[in-house]
Design a protein around this nucleic acid. Structure first.
Lengths: 219, 219
DNA sequence: CCGTGTATGTAGCGATCGTTACAGGCGCGA
DNA sequence: TCGCGCCTGTAACGATCGCTACATACACGG
C-alpha cells in the first residue's frame, strides 16, 4: 500500500546497502534520457542491480517512484547549487558575476533539469501530482533567480531592485530553459557562454527600460 | 518492406479516403501530448479509425510513421506560417510588428512545436534520423528568424543588419523555445505577450550593443 | 471476365509491460 | 533460541506492446 514507503524506520534505512538510493539514481538517469513511458521498471532494475520487488516495496508503483525521483531530486538539485557570492561593482559587473555562477551551476547538473523539462512536456493530461511538483520546483527556481537579480540591480535601491527583478525573472527563466534546450538539441552550434552573455546585456537593458518607465510613470 | 511507402503511385494516393492523412493527424496529436514510447500504435489506430495494418502499409514501422509525422508536419507547419508583411518605421516599430506577427503565428499552431520539443528532449540515444530532421527544421526556423531580424535592423544598412541578425538569431530562438515551454508548463502565470515585448526591448539593446562594438572594433 | 496492384480487415505472433503472490534471508529484541 | 519485521529473490500473472501472415475488397488495364 501507500504506507509502505512512509513507515520505514531508521533502522531499516540504515541497514540497507543503499538500494533505495541506487534505485532513485538509476531511475533519475534513465528518466532523464528517455521518457516516463519509455523507461521500464526492468531497465531501472537492471541499472540499479535490484529485483523489481524492491522497487515496489520502496515506492509502491511506477508513479510512486516517479514522484520520489522528482521530489528528492529537486532537494538534491537545490542543495547542489553553489551558494552565490555577494557580487560587487557596477550592475553590469554584478550581473556578469552572478550569471556566470548560475550558468556554471546549471551546467554542472543538467540531468535533473532535463528530467523536469521532459516530464513537463510529455505529461499533459495525466498525473496532476507530478505537474504540481514541477510547478513547485519552478517556483523555487524563480525565487532563487529573483534573489540573484535583486543583487544585480541593488544599485537601483532595494524597492526598485525588487520591482525590476520580479518583472524580469520570468524572462530570465524562459531564456535559461530555452538555452538549455538548444544546447541539448545541438551542443556543437550552441555557445552557452555567449548566450548567457547576451542575456546579461538584455537584462541590463530591460532593467534600464523598466526603471525609465517607472520614473516616467511616477511624474 | 521499406519500399512499400515509396512505391505508392499517384492513383493509389488519390483513391484512398484520406486514411494516410488521418493517420498522420492522429499520430501528430497523440505524439505531441504524450511521448514516442507512450503513444501506442493501437491508440493511433483508434483515433484515426484505421486498422493497424494500414499504418504498416503506409509507413512500414512505428519509426517510419514518426519520421513521416516530423517530416510532413514540418512542411505543413512552415506552410501555415503567415507570410510576414514588410515592416515600416523605426527599428523599434519594425521589431514590434514583426515579433507580433511571429508570436501570433507560433501560438496558432502550437502542436507541432510541442511535438518537436518532446522528441528533441526524450530521444537522446536512439534514432539519429529523427534528430537530424529536428535539426533541419531548427535550421529552417533559424533562417526564417534571421530574415525577420534583418528586416527589423534594416536601418543599420544591409551588411550590418545581416551581421547583427546572425548574432542574435540563436538568442531569439532560445528565448522563443523557453517562452513556449513556460507557457506550456504554467499557462496561467505566463504572459506570452509581455515576454515577447521584453524580447523586443532585449533584441534592440543587443543590436545596439553589437553595432557599437563593431564600430569600436573598426577603428 | 480475368489478372494486377492498392488498401483494408481478421487473427494472432512472441516479447515485454507493470504488477503481484509468496517464500526466504537477514538482523534485531526478547 | 525464537519470533518478528525489513528487504530481497523467484516466478509468474493478465494486459498490451509492435508487428505480421493471410485473406479479402475494390478499381483498373487487358
Amino acid at each position: 500500500m501507500a504506507s509502505t514507503a512512509a513507515m520505514r524506520t531508521k533502522r531499516g534505512v540504515e541497514r540497507g546497502p543503499g538500494s533505495r538510493e541506487r534505485i532513485l539514481e538509476a531511475a533519475s538517469t534513465l528518466l532523464a534520457e528517455g521518457s516516463y513511458a519509455g523507461t521500464s521498471i526492468s531497465a531501472i532494475c537492471a541499472r540499479a542491480a535490484v529485483p523489481p520487488t524492491s522497487i515496489y516495496w520502496h515506492f509502491g508503483s511506477k508513479e510512486g517512484l516517479l514522484g520520489a525521483v522528482v521530489e528528492e531530486g529537486a532537494d538534491r538539485w537545490f542543495a547542489g547549487l553553489r551558494p552565490l557570492r555577494q557580487p560587487t561593482g557596477t550592475p553590469h559587473e554584478r550581473l556578469e558575476q552572478v550569471l556566470d555562477q548560475l550558468a556554471e551551476s546549471l551546467s554542472r547538473q543538467p540531468e535533473f533539469l532535463r528530467l523536469l523539462l521532459t516530464l513537463a512536456l510529455e505529461r499533459k493530461k495525466t498525473d496532476p501530482a507530478c505537474l504540481r511538483t514541477i510547478r513547485r520546483v519552478r517556483k523555487r527556481a524563480l525565487a532563487g533567480l529573483q534573489a540573484i537579480l535583486e543583487m544585480a540591480f541593488a544599485a537601483f535601491g532595494p524597492a526598485r531592485a525588487q520591482a525590476v527583478a520580479s518583472e524580469l525573472v520570468l524572462f530570465a527563466l524562459a531564456f535559461a530553459d530555452g538555452a538549455f534546450l538548444a544546447h541539448h538539441i545541438d551542443p556543437r552550434t550552441t555557445d552557452l557562454q555567449r548566450l548567457f552573455g547576451q542575456l546579461r546585456v538584455a537584462l541590463l537593458a530591460l532593467g534600464d527600460d523598466l526603471a525609465a518607465r517607472h520614473e516616467r510613470g511616477r511624474r
